[in-house]
Design a protein around this nucleic acid. Sequence first.
DNA 1: AGCAATGACTTGCGATTTGCAAGTCATCTT
DNA 2: AAGATGACTTGCAAATCGCAAGTCATTGCT
Lengths: 162, 162
Amino acid sequence: MGAKPGPKRRSGCPVSISLDIFGDRWSLLIIRDLMVRGFRTFREFERGGEGIASNILADRLQRLETAGIIRPESDKDDRRRVNYRLTEKGIDLAPVLLDLLIWGSRHGEADAPCEIIEEMAESREQVLAEVRRRWEHRDPNPLLPWLSGSAEGSRSQRKKRK
Amino acid sequence: MGAKPGPKRRSGCPVSISLDIFGDRWSLLIIRDLMVRGFRTFREFERGGEGIASNILADRLQRLETAGIIRPESDKDDRRRVNYRLTEKGIDLAPVLLDLLIWGSRHGEADAPCEIIEEMAESREQVLAEVRRRWEHRDPNPLLPWLSGSAEGSRSQRKKRK
DNA sequence: AGCAATGACTTGCGATTTGCAAGTCATCTT
DNA sequence: AAGATGACTTGCAAATCGCAAGTCATTGCT
């Protein structure tokens, strides 16, 4: 019943604590998918992602849940399905994800449209507010449609308010 | 002799690319130490950190160098010594580090003074500007003295300009 | 000059963690 | 009733990690 010790804390530094929780190659991708791609289920993470193995996925979901970053809720309409959702602690990672996105876009050869991301960088606060708003309203629409595998589905959510 | 392939890229998503480079439990701590603790040498990372093994440290330094995030320069006064420095690509990770710091401070039970970090969160742009300024001027003074093992050494760098 | 110290890494190696592939087991669907 | 689905386990082989110890050029000390 007690929370598992998890990765042992190395120091009291907040950065170190953060990394003890999601300092690996998968956790933040899962959080990204929850935050901006509208993913909810095990299956979606397994397929839509970049090829995470199911055992690793299960492990990461468990860790993130233990850390209080996500919470599973069983679907009422289909009881096989488990819908994962970010907690407030989880949605608070939005700034980190946004900065990773910006950095990766500027410095890695990403095949994502850099201009759009630069726009997001300029209107940082608005983007973050929008992410949070969607989370509060349980809006399942992906914020970054071009990040989703299928580019179709929703358009016209550019928000330029310089 | 050739650069190692490194972790193979999983997708074109900028976030994924970022995590392929420093998505582990140590890389960002090294970058943090370079950025705000004024660390420069292998020895400092090895000791001042939270107990990274020397082989892992060597590996991470190599990876970060290959990724163009840090650059080693041999010390002119002591030729045994190698001084590592962040590249521009590396200093651009400051926003990520700052957000990790803020998140960890708010949500993990860090033993760092939260008020100070909240102040930093409020004056985000100034803090980032200061970090960059110090980097440009090669100012070796730690930005976050309370993060360093010994609390002494430099004071009076609170910058409140609301 | 001679010799111990220092700094930056390697090497060995057992303990974990990853990454497949396959299997389990409750729900749905038809 | 029989076959999908969804969410996970299990079993390993392979890659990493972490710890202790060892290299090997400088440097410092006497």
